[in-house]
Amino acid sequence: MSTKENSSEEIDLGQLFTLIGNGFHKLFQFIGSVFKSFFHLIILFLQFIRAHFLKFVIAIIIGIVAGSYWDYKSEKVYRSSMIVEPNFNSAQQLYNNVEFYDELAKQEEFEALAGALKIEVKYAKSIREVKIESFSDQAQKISQFSEFIQGLDSISQKLVDYEDYLENFNNINSKFHRIHIKSTNPRVAKKCRKQIVRSIEENEYFRLQKRINEQNITLSDSIIERQLLELDSLQRFYRKVKMIEASKDIGGTNINLAQSKTGELPEVALLKKVEELQEDKVELNNEKASTDNIINVISDFPNKGVLVNDWFTKKKVLLPLACLGLILIFLLLMELNRYLKQYQN
């Protein structure tokens, strides 16, 4: 009985290994057929390229010649950039204004563009594009996140982390923004700079925000100055008391200046408080300097723009690629038509 059972188990195991072997064999056959088909397609494509190689070369040469002539005859375009720092949440208005200028340039509404930028119509006709983009590196985003967190209450600070802040980060929230102007006149951007900034500074809402900010800074500065004077008077008082104590004999009248709850001497606590107020004053001065204008111009437009010489925008590069693509599509359609005729026969 046991002999029959062993024989049956050996047969079952043999069938299992046979099935596994057949499965691997079919898998390898399938992989081999895929590689074979892929290799076959490559060979067919290479044969197609070899058969029409001369046509491709002629198309590329025609494209290079025509593109070079087109580049030679085209007007030269110059690019100028200005970096600004908007204050009082004026970035959105700045973006709207720049997009308005760009739409006028694209629609060739040169008289309206000249009126909006306060320049002559002949200069407005030279403008091809007006763009704005934000830029901020990781350090700037971390700094902005720190400022954002400080403005929240303790409960909200626990609910917001840096990843959440980045997910909801809007480009308009960036600290710095770059304005580009492309024009056939290399000096027109400098003429537009004044009105681009003035269009924001003449806004009544932003002027009100700036005026209130100046009043708040003046008030905070006066409070700090008054506190520093009071601390100075208190320090002089403590010095007088120390001198009186030093002049008394031991066992005489003593004036006790109690220590603070942290165990610090009053003089030390006063010095620390003075240092804190001086740091606050430094921060206040920095804020006053950075918010002195509604739009801070970090880097102005140059007196003369830079010639746009981007390789991927040149016609002598784009036109050969276009010619090559067209001739390739045409030849493929011809091959498809020939195959359909043979298939029909």
Rank of each mutant, 00 (worst) to 15 (best):
V188Q: 01
Y165T: 10
P86S: 09
L284Y: 05
F56D: 10
E10R: 08
W70Q: 07
N216D: 02
W311H: 12
L331A: 04
N168R: 09
S299N: 14
P86M: 10
K304R: 14
S7N: 06
A105R: 00
R338I: 15
S290W: 09
S156V: 09
E133Y: 13
L94T: 04
V121Q: 11
N171W: 11
A124L: 07
E120H: 13
I200R: 00
L104A: 03
E287H: 06
Y165Q: 12
L159F: 11
K272D: 04
I217M: 10
I132G: 01
E10W: 14
E109Y: 02
E214H: 05
E85T: 15
E120G: 15
P320F: 09
E85K: 15
L319T: 09
L271P: 00
Y123P: 08
L27C: 13
R187F: 10
L257E: 06
S156M: 06
L19N: 14
V77F: 00
D292P: 12
T18K: 14
A322F: 15
L16N: 02
H25T: 15
E9T: 04
E201P: 08
E108D: 08
C192G: 00
I329T: 07
H177W: 05
S143D: 14
I62G: 08
K158R: 09
F45Q: 13
K76L: 02
E75V: 00
K190Y: 12
L27G: 10
